[in-house]
């Protein structure tokens, strides 16, 4: 089973600032918060920015998601989901290496914090 999409042909959605509802969901544990390190998601996400992540078991091609990988958390764009896992790419081709067959999604990036 494969779901994929050509990201270059897609318009990536913007990530809105966290509204009151998102902040309250963070307080009650329904959102996870991460600080971005690195440049691979420019221009959408800059180093030092913080994002809120909605926990989900399954993400789709084109989603910006958080993933567990080798003990770290990655923020990347889903290029495709295959039976072997997620193929992840950065948006900044000059400073990004792709990942294949990543198994563990944490969730979907839904908003930026402030």
């Amino acid at each position: 089973m494969t779901s994929s999409g050509n990201l270059k042909e897609k318009t990536l959605p913007g990530i809105p600032p966290a509204n009151l509802k998102e902040l309250l969901l963070l307080f009650v544990g329904k959102r996870k918060r991460f600080k971005i390190e690195g440049h691979s998601m420019l221009p959408l996400l800059s180093p030092g920015e913080e994002v809120l992540v909605k926990p989900l078991d399954r993400l789709n091609a084109g989603d910006i998601g958080a993933f567990e990988h080798n003990g770290n958390v990655l923020i990347k764009c889903v290029e495709a989901y295959t039976e072997h896992g997620y193929n992840l790419v950065g948006l900044n081709e000059a400073d990004s290496t792709n990942y294949n067959n990543v198994k563990k999604p944490i969730g979907l990036v839904v908003s930026k914090l402030g």
């Binding site: 963070l26 918060r33 600080k35 390190e37 958390v73």
Partner: peptide
């Protein structure tokens, strides 16, 4: 919220 540190998520390889 920002008074506390958030866990780091890597947007690099």
């Amino acid at each position: 919220i920002k008074q506390t540190d958030a866990p780091v998520a890597f947007a690099h390889c």
